[in-house]
């Protein structure tokens, strides 16, 4: 029963995380560029982006923890992360998700704090931080495509998909 609830929470948190990742990449970044051009970006950077980033980074943590708990509780954590046996496919998804979590907390969030003015930074530092955060965010968008493939298909490995 706890595995069922955990799996459900994992998917809810994952939808929140990846949904906001796609929002940032497909909507906010191009929208913000257009808003800056006509001088209406302030509302987005002040009210929208910090809230979206709050849900984004904590949803990433909940997704990883519920995923790790599931693997540990099922006794497949080690096999998945060393890509062993039938759990290797899920393991590839788990590694990609782990890299994405690292990107969120080590590259995206610290640099976004500079870009949004939540910590002090010069204009040059802000420009560099914006580029780093964008590339990390785009990397996560790219990684999410195989990550979701291996999460979905890996959880079906018991029916012999591979």
């Amino acid at each position: 029963m706890d595995l069922l609830l955990d799996r459900w929470l994992h998917i809810l948190a994952g939808v929140t995380w990846v949904g906001l990742l796609y929002y940032f990449n497909f909507v906010q970044v191009p929208g913000l560029a257009a808003a800056k051009a006509d001088g209406t970006a302030a509302g987005i950077t002040k009210h929208i982006a910090p809230r979206a980033l709050l849900w984004f980074r904590w949803a990433a943590v909940v997704t990883w923890l519920t995923g790790a708990y599931y693997l540990a509780r099922a006794g497949t954590f080690a096999d998945a992360f060393v890509l062993q046996g039938p759990h290797a496919y899920l393991g590839i998804g788990a590694w990609l998700g782990t890299i994405m979590l690292f990107n969120v907390w080590v590259l995206i969030w610290p640099n976004q704090k500079k870009v949004l003015g939540l910590v002090d930074a010069s204009d040059a530092e802000k420009a560099k931080a914006a580029r780093t955060a964008l590339l990390a965010s785009r990397t996560n968008t790219m990684l999410s495509i195989p990550m979701l493939f291996f999460m979905v298909t890996g959880s079906l490995s018991h029916i012999g998909m591979f």
Binding site: F26, L83, I92, R138, M142, P146
Partner: peptide, 30 residues
């Protein structure tokens, strides 16, 4: 060479290419 991650389309195409590479790795190496 242009970074494919500079565009949304390049990012998505890179994701599909990486999926294919990892699929081949998973089936051929693991």
């Amino acid at each position: 060479m242009k970074n494919p991650l500079d565009s949304i389309s390049g990012t998505i195409i890179s994701g599909f290419v990486l999926t294919l590479i990892l699929y081949i790795f998973a089936n051929g190496v693991l």
